[in-house]
Amino acid sequence: MNQSTYTVTGMTCDHCVASVTEEIGEIDGVQDVVVDLASGAVTVTSTEPLDDERVRAAVEEAGYKLAS
């Protein structure tokens, strides 16, 4: 099992959290997504290491950005 943490910018409410959780959750191998709204930290648990570009694309699909 792998765990990665990303920082997502622009989230301001529970709807934002739900959108990011849903989009990242659709990536193959993702088992769990935990979002901390206050810090923007998104912890993703997956069966295999994730391609950061796939995570970035999912976050952008939800309408937000990964911090550099």
Rank of each mutant, 00 (worst) to 15 (best):
M1L: 15
M1P: 12
N2K: 14
N2I: 13
S4P: 03
T5E: 06
T5D: 03
Y6N: 05
Y6F: 12
Y6G: 03
Y6Q: 12
Y6C: 10
T7F: 01
V8W: 01
V8P: 00
T9K: 10
G10L: 12
G10P: 13
M11G: 07
M11S: 11
M11C: 14
C13R: 08
H15D: 08
H15R: 10
H15M: 14
C16T: 05
C16Y: 06
C16A: 04
V17E: 01
A18M: 15
S19K: 10
V20S: 06
T21C: 08
T21N: 13
E22N: 11
E23H: 13
G25R: 00
G25Q: 03
E26L: 13
E26D: 12
I27C: 12
D28S: 15
D28M: 09
G29P: 05
G29C: 11
G29F: 08
G29E: 08
G29V: 08
V30E: 03
Q31S: 13
V33G: 03
V33Q: 03
V35A: 04
V35F: 01
D36V: 10
D36W: 00
D36C: 04
L37G: 03
L37Y: 07
A38C: 07
A38E: 11
S39E: 04
S39H: 10
G40T: 03
A41K: 14
A41G: 08
V42S: 02
T43I: 06
V44K: 00
V44D: 00
V44W: 00
T45S: 08
T45A: 10
S46M: 13
T47D: 14
E48P: 05
D51P: 13
R54I: 04
V55T: 06
V55K: 00
R56L: 11
R56V: 05
R56I: 04
A57N: 09
A58D: 01
V59P: 01
V59L: 02
V59S: 00
E61Q: 15
E61K: 14
A62G: 03
G63D: 02
G63W: 01
G63M: 00
K65A: 08
K65P: 02
L66S: 05
A67Q: 13
S68F: 02
